[in-house]
Amino acid sequence: MSLAARRSASAMRGHENVKEIAGSAGLALVALVVWQVASGLTFVIPTPVETLRVLVANLGDPAYLTDVRATAVAVVSAFTVGTVLGGIMGLVLGLSRWARLIFEPLVIALNGVPKIVLYPILLPIFQLSGSKVVMGILFALFPVLINVATGVREVPAVYWKLGRSVQASRVQMLLHIILPTIRRPLLTGIRLAASLAVVGVVLSEFFATRRGLGRVVLQSYGHGDYAEMVATILLLIVVSFTVSIMLWRWEKRIR
């Protein structure tokens, strides 16, 4: 590519970015206005300003931060374990015809089960603190597993031939052919795992837990403290949203 062409291409990309940011900002503004109007209609919804005030106050409160940490630790563990486990299971399912024949129907069926109904069964086994992590893992596991398994099966036959013809070892095959080939579906799986880990953990916290943001939300609902409730929900949304967007942008950038 000539220098001029490269410059104009990067200018174009810059243009796209500006459009993207302007679009997002516009959308956020609309959401804010709708929120403001809605808060005037019912006392259940606090105004944006009130919500922000409560949120800031909360983040300075050590007791609240303990809840934040409890949820964060559970989410990060669930995400990490779920992604690694899902990735390994996906590789096995994608690579081995036997594993596929035996386990694929099981995986599809299990994925169809509303996982949260298992929570009462998990509780006596993993206790209050462990169960929500396990639930988060169950939520995070499947998108990675399914995306990796499908991706591996779609590795072009010629890549396998290439690998074999240069005598690549299994590890080299994995690192230099399979992982790069499935990079896109893998990242999609990871992005979905990140948001589903939050869903699994917070959903569990709604039902039973000692500490965590799900419990805070439910408790403030019980006390009729809607500002506290909405502020916490907002925190959850903003954090998940930011992580998803970051992963999504990364996904778009790779070749």
Binding site: A157, I177, R255
Partner: peptide, 11 residues
């Protein structure tokens, strides 16, 4: 071997 199929690695 030079394969019949497209075999460059796009990444």
């Amino acid at each position: 071997v030079v394969f019949q199929e497209e075999s460059t690695l796009p990444w």
